[in-house]
Design a protein around this nucleic acid. Structure first.
Lengths: 137, 137
DNA sequence: ATATGTGCAAAGAGTTTGCAACGGT
DNA sequence: ACCGTTGCAAACTCTTTGCACATAT
């Protein structure tokens, strides 16, 4: 998606293009796997303050527009990243917390199975696999 | 695990067998996929009150002992169930909230792939797949 | 000009913790 | 009797909401 096309997208739906929204999107883009808090902190470094509640509202909006997605990588806050960067599956070690990303084709058999058995459309972006990594087993 | 063997297990580790712990375990067994709140409510029906913080502490203990596990089936509180009942994967529709359980062998290719590629030991019990069900796509 | 968006503060879920009293062993 | 366990209340984290003011269109 180009810089201007999502501006159009917003306006077409009656939403407005605000500095806060641009800053939040840039932070999501730059940070990768960032929590709302982290995004807020990052945005505040760029002089113009943004309230945490605006960050929540903006993330909700951007997610609705399909520009970002979130995943739960642990027990705390969810992490957000660009939907276009989301073509991977998260693998999280519950002992050391290490986060790996693996090729989505590893889950293809699962996706296909759910499709044929349940008619279920898996949201691969949101999938997180917990377990123990090589070092922690 | 028999009724008495986990009593032994507790005592062997220096923990005590209390009515609260027995009631919480029974509630987890009976309710399946229950949140701490729901477990607390259920236990309170059996006359003897149990505080919500005791429920949290007990679930943590039972999980450490490997008797129960939890999963995140949505944005709210986690749900607990007996570890021995955990031989299934949860599939959750993000539109209607419907929860299905599927055979663990559907994820076997994923588990094997993570094992061989990363040396990663997947916790299948904790795996939840989000997406859209047949009716909601 | 007008309706959407923002900041602020307060409320709301869900969870954890400190401490005195309680009760298994 | 000892020490783990509980209840209670308070603190804490993460998130949502109401409302007056600000601002994109």
């Amino acid at each position: 998606m180009t810089e201007t096309s999502w501006h159009e997208e917003l306006r077409a739906r009656g939403y407005r293009v605000t500095p806060q929204r641009q800053l939040v999107l840039e932070a999501v883009k730059a940070l990768e796997h960032a929590t709302p808090e982290e995004i807020c902190t990052r945005v505040r470094e760029t002089a113009r303050g943004v309230n945490i509640s605006t960050v929540y509202r903006t993330l909700e909006l951007l997610e609705e527009l399909g520009m970002v997605t979130h995943t739960h990588l642990g027990h705390g806050a969810p992490t957000y990243h660009l939907a276009s960067d989301a073509d991977h599956v998260h693998v999280v070690c519950r002992v050391c917390g290490e986060i790996s990303e693996v090729r989505p084709d590893l889950v293809q058999p699962l996706v296909d199975g759910l499709e044929s058995e349940l008619g279920f459309a898996t949201d691969v972006h949101h999938l997180t696999v917990f377990g123990r990594c090589r070092n922690c087993r």
